[in-house]
Design a protein around this nucleic acid. Structure first.
Lengths: 180, 180
DNA sequence: ACCCTTCTATATCAAATCGATATATGCCGG
DNA sequence: CCGGCATATATCGATTTGATATAGAAGGGT
């Protein structure tokens, strides 16, 4: 999924500035399955404007930097629906934590415990964020999608809570053997 | 996690060619949490060789293209252990499927059903792959890591199996309302 | 009063990475 | 005997990341 489609998706449901698109993709209902940096959003919006899939109006505020508010055009909506109707590409999952975990035999138990702590804290924070969103006025497909994320993250955290000691033992045993 | 660290990780546990690194990262025990293209692996190996973190020997076979087999050096091992000991960055999850799901109200029920079918097929294939790997001679941290992936993917599939009809109903209702 | 951090908001740029393409041979099944 | 697949290299334009720069408002702490 490219940044172009992400911008169209967010603009489909309402006007936004580049900054707001970034914020929505990091904190909003899209946050657990998309991401994009400023360095890709601003060029993407310029390309979309050139292709007339979005329009831009500048809101000039005295003393403040101008807000560039983007709106999707009819052609942009068509383009977005076309992109959505294509079969989805495989989900992508990248985990530095699991690279550390799979190397438990060589990194030492303290590092494993710290990596587990960090990852579990992240998961708890994300789960709390999901719960907060569900307490709001979320409905329909958005609610379904957030509950999906919540379910996956809870399963992940449960595994770590139940099985972390096993990985820590593997790391400890390997360290002991190396010392012999 | 950059391709550089991925190459060092794979070479830490044994010599490999660029092609084999790609294959391991797609089909092996790393497959569910890393990925890299040839376009990033070959330049990364060249950079690692320049930095003397790996060495390369060419195995020339008459009539066949030469195999470039890379080995990690002592400095490379130190560098890899150093990279592992840094706190892990947040896991990354990107899903085109969930972008379609969150747009259930606007894409139409057939597209939703098809996207669900595709995603569930992928998950079943991945789960089967995990099971096959666990039937082999997998042990220790690798087994723990694969079981983690299996648990997460099973939870994901279970949610889709139990709740897909709800999303399909949301899509169907929205289409009916739009027709009025 | 002053400083420091955070938030809003823009944008650029080198470096890394993706995804497609090119090339060449061996091997297996139809 | 042909087509497709696996092995194996490599390049290249386009995209994306991650860091950095700029700048005013707003708020908290000392």
């Amino acid at each position: 999924m490219n940044v172009r489609t992400l911008c169209l998706a967010i603009l489909y449901f309402g006007d936004a500035t580049g900054y707001e698109i970034k914020k929505l993709s990091m904190e909003g209902k899209y946050s657990h399955f998309v991401d994009a940096s400023f360095g890709s959003i601003y060029p993407a919006l310029n390309r979309l404007e050139s292709a007339e899939l979005v329009t831009c109006r500048e809101e000039i505020q005295p003393g403040k930097p101008a807000r560039k508010v983007y709106s999707i055009t009819e052609a942009g909506k068509q383009e977005f629906l076309k992109a959505l109707s294509e079969p989805p590409k495989e989900d992508v999952f990248r985990s530095e934590f699991l690279l550390i975990a799979i190397c438990a035999e060589i990194v030492g138990p303290e590092h494993i415990s710290r990596a587990l702590d960090i990852r579990m804290d992240q998961l708890r924070k994300d789960i709390e964020h999901f719960r907060t969103m569900l307490d709001g006025q979320i409905q329909g497909a958005t609610k379904w999608t957030i509950k999906y994320g919540l379910t996956c993250f809870e399963a992940s955290l449960a595994y770590l809570e139940n099985e972390r000691h096993e990985l820590e033992q593997i790391a400890a045993s390997a360290t002991r053997e190396a010392a012999e």
